[in-house]
Design a protein around this nucleic acid. Structure first.
Lengths: 150, 150
DNA sequence: GTATCTGCAAACCCTTTGCAATAAG
DNA sequence: CTTATTGCAAAGGGTTTGCAGATAC
């Protein structure tokens, strides 16, 4: 049971939905999965242009929902009116610890969330699909700078 | 040590910052704390107009950051390009369980988050300020409708 | 060939901002 | 009185959309 490539997953998703596997869609997937960073549409657009890939923002905006629906990426957080994404296919579900001062992000896996989800499903009768835990604070450096060492 | 009213807290906050306690600010606080619902700026604006309170959206947009800074309200989630808020003063910190189909929201208190926060602070050296856990899924009704009873 | 997809530019919509009038202290 | 605040309307800025030409299949 070898793991399918993200391209393969996307291709099958498109086929299943009667959609087409275009140059632009292939390039977006490739670009997104070529780094581990969180990104927004604007960043993705600029990155692709820098690589010499011709694409419009409109197309990116139209393709993002497909990638989410195909469970290849996920929106992680919102800031300054922008949506930030990360690619999730092939990664263990994880949470984010963000410094509100410098924006640095640490990822961590928290097994206790599974228990919490299970308890919630039972208590409220929900079918739990996913959970998102975001912790905010000061990273060690900013903490020192702003809270005076302690 | 009686609990201060939200008005009192806001008044003191404003004073402390050299700001003025205006009609509009008083009315916003009163309106927000008169229900337990989550709200966005537009809803708040319409609610106030319905009650016959004269206020502009611009003022609401300008006052929201003050309420957040005074720790009276908090932004809870973003959806369809909008920010949703809830009043938090006087409430125990809680998390949200949302139905992605009908939008219903259940609130729950999760004591295990405190442990998680403590562990994170130690592991990454962060000063943790707050955490936000949002769980998404299908509520009992929507689950039945869409997933066929099971 | 046919229906989907793309790029462009305009439209949208929530939010922010400049400015003159108003009100708090 | 002095300075902060409000309301209005215009500007911003991210996202969506209509349409004609391009492209997957």
């Amino acid at each position: 049971m070898g793991k399918k490539s993200e391209l393969q997953v996307f291709r099958e998703y498109l086929q299943r939905h009667g959609l087409r596997y275009t140059q632009e869609r292939e390039q977006i997937i490739k670009t997104i999965f070529s780094t581990h960073d969180h990104f927004d549409v604007d960043t993705l657009y600029l990155t692709m242009r820098q690589k010499g890939i011709r694409i419009s923002k409109a197309s990116i905006y139209r393709i993002m929902p497909l990638l989410i629906d195909a469970e290849l990426i996920q929106d992680v957080f919102f800031e300054a009116g922008r949506v930030y994404y990360e690619h999730t296919y092939g990664h263990e579900p994880h949470c984010h610890l963000r410094c509100i001062e410098c924006g640095k992000i640490e990822e961590f896996v928290e097994p206790r969330l599974k228990d919490i989800e299970r308890d919630l499903a039972e208590r409220f009768g929900y079918k739990v699909l996913k959970s998102n835990l975001e912790v905010r604070g000061f990273c060690p450096e900013c903490r020192e700078k702003f809270l005076g060492r302690k």
